[in-house]
Structure formats: C-alpha cells, structure tokens
C-alpha cells in the first residue's frame, strides 16, 4: 500500500486577519450545512491581546491510534479523516487530542475535524489563510511512546 509522505495543513498569517470569521462560517457549511460560526467549525479564530490566533488540526494523527473502530484513517492525501458512518461517538479522539482540535458540536454525537479542504482559505477576504504542504514525519505524533518503562 502506498503511504502518503506529505500533507497539506493550514498556515495562518495573523497580521492579515481582521477577525471576520468568514472562515468559520465556511467550515460549518462544510461539516454541518449551516452558516454558524463557532462550535460547528473545525477552524477557530481566537482573539488575543495582540490580534488573532488560529486553532485547528495540524494532521499529526495521534488520534488515529485512539479509534476503537477504525473510523479515523489517514487518507491518500495525508489528511486524518473521520468517517462518521463508522464512528461510534466515544470521544476518545476528542479527549486525547493534545491541542483540542478534534471537535464536538452538541447537535450530533460524532466529532469532526479539519480535512484541509481549503474552504476557509477561499472564504477569507484578507488571504490570511493558506494551505501549505509539509512532510508527514515532521508532524506525526503517537500516543504514549515509550512511556511504559
């Protein structure tokens, strides 16, 4: 089986962001077919003292080893993907994501995450978001590596 070697992840140009949240609205359109920003968006823009910061999955894939039913896989393009039809809503991935990027909205039990689709990039009027290709070994992370001894 061919394994992906790279993956596209979101890069945020904080200096360009004006906090309009068009990215979040575009994202919730992808995941929930609504235009709400906030909890239904996989990307979150957070207002900080200095401006804005982005909070989103970086495709490190630690959650892959958490899924008991194999609903989480790394796709050919390197993206970590949650198949909602297989998911049994246990929230293990949500609870274990070290950066809180696997999200859960109240409307359904299955979580959701960034799939690097680029909707937010296209929606951003200020071009503050960009998809960049990175090497997988540089981002991957596993659970509890060598901590048993």
């Amino acid at each position: 089986m061919d394994h992906p070697t790279t993956v596209k992840i979101l890069k945020f140009h904080a200096e360009k962001c004006n906090g309009c949240l068009e990215c979040e609205k575009a994202c919730s359109q992808v995941h929930f077919k609504t235009k709400d920003d906030g909890e239904k968006s996989a990307i979150r823009i957070i207002k900080t003292e200095k401006g804005y910061s982005m909070h989103v999955c970086d495709q490190r894939g630690l959650c892959l080893d958490m899924c008991p039913v194999g609903a989480l896989t790394r796709r050919k393009n390197g993206v970590v993907w949650l198949d909602v039809n297989t998911c049994i809503g246990c929230q293990a991935c949500v609870g274990f994501c070290p950066i809180g990027a696997m999200r859960k909205a109240d409307v359904r039990i299955e979580p959701f995450k960034c799939i690097s689709c680029g909707s937010c990039v296209r929606a951003c009027p200020e071009k503050a978001l960009e998809l960049v290709e990175v090497k997988l070994p540089d981002v991957t992370q596993v659970v509890y590596h060598k901590l048993g001894a």
Binding site: D65, P68, V69, I88, A92, F96, V143, Y144, A149
Partner: peptide, 17 residues
C-alpha cells in the same frame, strides 16, 4: 511492557481510554 503490543486502543469496550 517489553512484551506487550503497544499503541493500540486496548479497551475491552469501545471508548474505554
């Protein structure tokens, strides 16, 4: 630990982390 298979979701029911 040396003998166990590692990094697998080892709950005896789904979601037991």
């Amino acid at each position: 630990y040396e003998l166990f298979t590692k990094i697998i979701p080892d709950g005896c029911w789904h979601g037991c982390t």
